[in-house]
Design a binder for these strands. Structure first.
Lengths: 264, 264
DNA sequence: TAGTGGTCTAGACCACCGA
DNA sequence: CGGTGGTCTAGACCACTAG
C-alpha cells in the first residue's frame, strides 16, 4: 500500500496518487481512447478502477480540467473538450524551456548589460526603494538560428550578482539561476499586447520599422512573493503564438484597457 | 444551519459555503487587510473561524489561488501574491461582457452577414462536414465610441437562425444567444498573436495599413463540447491588453474534493 | 427516478518549513 | 521540533441531468 501505483519521480520523490491517475487519463485522452466530445467514466467507476476514494479521483480530474482537457456540469458525466494540454508556467515564463519542450533549437545572446538605479516605476514593480540598484539586460533570443525575440529585462539588485555570473550566450536564464543559487521563479504576471517595432527593435529583429511585434511584459516573483525581474519581451510577428484554453469554470486570462497605469 | 452565512445568489440559488469564504478572504486581500507578500491565517485557523471543515477552507483558498491572489508551498503559510482578481470566462469570450464589467460604454455593428459553405479548415474547427452551411459575420466593436476591434466570426449552421435573429447593433451576442435559445458558451480555445493591418482592417479600424493589431482567434463550444463559432478578432494596438497570472504549481487543484481553476 | 457531479465532514498520515 | 500545507479516506446529503 506504500506503492503509489505509479512509481516514483525520476528525482526519487514519490508522486501523489492523483497525479498518476491524471497522467493515465491524460494519456488515454491524447491517444484518442476517450474522443473529444465523449464522456469520461463516472467518478465512482474511476474510484473503483484505480482503487482510491472518490476524493482522489476528483483531484485527478481537477488537474485535467485545469489543463483544459475535460469539462463538467453537475448531474452529467464529464466530457472531453480538448486533446492538447495548454501552456505550462515554464512555457510562459521561460523562453528556453518553452522552445525546448517544443523541440526547437534555441539560442540567446546578451547584447547589453549594466547596473543602474531603479526609476520610480521599476521600484514599484520590483518592490524596491527608488534609487536602489537594478541590473538591466538586453538579450536577443533565436529559434533555429533566426532572431525572433528581443528581451529587455530589469533584475532586482539582490539577484544581480548571480545574473552577472551567467555566460552571455546562456540558453536558459531560468535554469541557470536555479542551478547557481537555487532561485525558483514561482509566480508570474503577464501583459500581452501588440506594438510597432522601434528603431532598436527593427534593427535587431531584422524587420521593418513599424512592423507588428507581439509584446509580453511580465513580473516574476519567488515562492515568497518577492519580485525578481521585470521584463519586456517582443516577438517578431508570426514567430510565436500564445495559446489559452479556458472554461466557464476556470479562466486565467483577462483583457485590460490599453492605458494601464502600473505597467506601461 | 441552512444559511450559508453568505446569503443566497440574486437568482435565488444558494451559494456554496466555500464560495462565500473565498469572497470574504478576497475582500480582505483587496482591501489590504492582508497585504501583498504577507501570510494568510493557517487552514486550521480559518476552519475554526468560519466553523467549517478544513476541506472546505481548502476549496476556498483554491479559488483564490486560481485567481492568482494567493500562493502556497508545503510546510509554509499561504502568502498573498496579488491584489487584483483576474477572472471570468465571460471577459475573455464576450467583448461586451468584459467591457461592461469594466464600466465602459460599448457598441457593435454588423457590417456583413451571409450564409455560405464551410471550407475545409472551418469544417475541422467547427466539427462539421465540408460543405455544411455556416454563417459568416463581420462586426465592428467600439469602446466609448471609438472603433477598437474587428470581429470575423463563422457560426456553425445549426446556430445560424438564432444569430440571424439578433439585431445588427446588438451589444452582446453572447447574451442574446443565451436569452433567445439558452445557448451557453462554456469552453474556449484561444490563439493570440500580432498581425499587420490589411486593407479592410485599416479602413474599418481607422489605422494605417501595416500597423500592428493584436489578434485573438478562438473556437467556442457548448457545455457538451459542441463547437459554436470560430472567430478572428483584431484589436487596434494600444486599445486592449491581455493579462495572465500564473504559478509554477502545475497543480491548480487543491482540496480534497473539488475542482476548479488556471493558466496559464 | 436513477445516476452523477457538487459540497461537506471528521478524521488520518506525511513532507516540508521555520525557529 | 511544532506548525503547516499536501494527500487520502469513507462516509453523507443535495442539485442537477437524462432517460
Amino acid at each position: 500500500m506504500v506503492d503509489t501505483g505509479n512509481g516514483a519521480e525520476p528525482g526519487g520523490r514519490a508522486a501523489a496518487r492523483y497525479v498518476g491517475i491524471a497522467a493515465e487519463l491524460r494519456e488515454a485522452i491524447m491517444c484518442g481512447e476517450y474522443a473529444v466530445g465523449s464522456q469520461l467514466p463516472s467518478e465512482t467507476t474511476l474510484a473503483t478502477r484505480f482503487d482510491v476514494s472518490r476524493g482522489t479521483v476528483r483531484q485527478a480530474v481537477a488537474l485535467l480540467a485545469a489543463e483544459g482537457l475535460v469539462g463538467s456540469r453537475q448531474g452529467a458525466r464529464r466530457i472531453v473538450v480538448g486533446r492538447e494540454r495548454s501552456q505550462s508556467f515554464a512555457e510562459l515564463n521561460s523562453f528556453a524551456q518553452w522552445a525546448q519542450a517544443m523541440g526547437y533549437r534555441v539560442s540567446g545572446q546578451v547584447l547589453e548589460q549594466r547596473r543602474r538605479d531603479a526609476d520610480a516605476a521599476e521600484a514599484v514593480r520590483l518592490a524596491l526603494q527608488p534609487g536602489d540598484q537594478v541590473l538591466s539586460v538586453l538579450r536577443l533570443r533565436s529559434l533555429e538560428g533566426e532572431p525572433v525575440m528581443l528581451e529587455r529585462t530589469v533584475y532586482a539588485g539582490w539577484i544581480a550578482p548571480a545574473v552577472e555570473r551567467i555566460p552571455p550566450d546562456c540558453e536558459s536564464i531560468t535554469q541557470a539561476l536555479y542551478e547557481d543559487v537555487g532561485l525558483v521563479f514561482a509566480y508570474g504576471e503577464h501583459l500581452i499586447d501588440a506594438v510597432s517595432a522601434g528603431v532598436e527593435d527593427s534593427r535587431l529583429l531584422v524587420v521593418r520599422r513599424g512592423s507588428p511585434l507581439l509584446r509580453q511584459r511580465r513580473v516574476t516573483t519567488t515562492h515568497e512573493g518577492r519580485p525578481v525581474e521585470w521584463s519586456d519581451d517582443r516577438y517578431r510577428a508570426g514567430s510565436v503564438t500564445f495559446s489559452i484554453r479556458n472554461s466557464v469554470d476556470a479562466n486565467p486570462l483577462v483583457r485590460q484597457m490599453g492605458d494601464l497605469r502600473l505597467m506601461s
